[in-house]
């Protein structure tokens, strides 16, 4: 199973076609399309599938999810 970790938007390129954003996934920066989520802003958390941000998470939900991943990783070690 493929698990989706939230990434945080660090900048948005409004003039790109389609509109893209640089997103930080635990230290890895990726450019993703944000055309399909409403009113994305810097610092928002997003879930990305195949290069498209498919949903936005509020900060609390993102933290809760990231915390789960931390627990998950600790268990693996």
């Amino acid at each position: 199973m493929c698990l989706a970790i939230p990434g945080q938007v660090i900048s948005i390129n409004q003039s790109a076609k389609p509109i893209t954003a640089k997103v930080n996934f635990s230290g890895i920066i990726r450019e993703v399309v944000v055309e399909w989520i409403d009113q994305v802003a810097v610092n928002d958390y997003v879930i990305v599938h195949a290069g498209f941000a498919i949903s936005k998470l509020d900060q609390q939900a993102a933290f809760e999810t990231l915390q789960l991943f931390d627990q998950f990783d600790q268990q693996q070690e």
Binding site: C2, A4, H49, F72
Partner: peptide, 28 residues
């Protein structure tokens, strides 16, 4: 890339939490 150990991760959690937990981890 596949997660092994996900099933083990769920073990020990109360059953009523599961529908919320799985949707958090499987965000797609």
């Amino acid at each position: 890339a596949e997660f092994r150990g996900f099933e083990r991760f769920i073990q020990g959690r109360p059953y009523w939490e599961i529908p919320i937990l799985v949707q958090r981890l499987c965000g797609i």
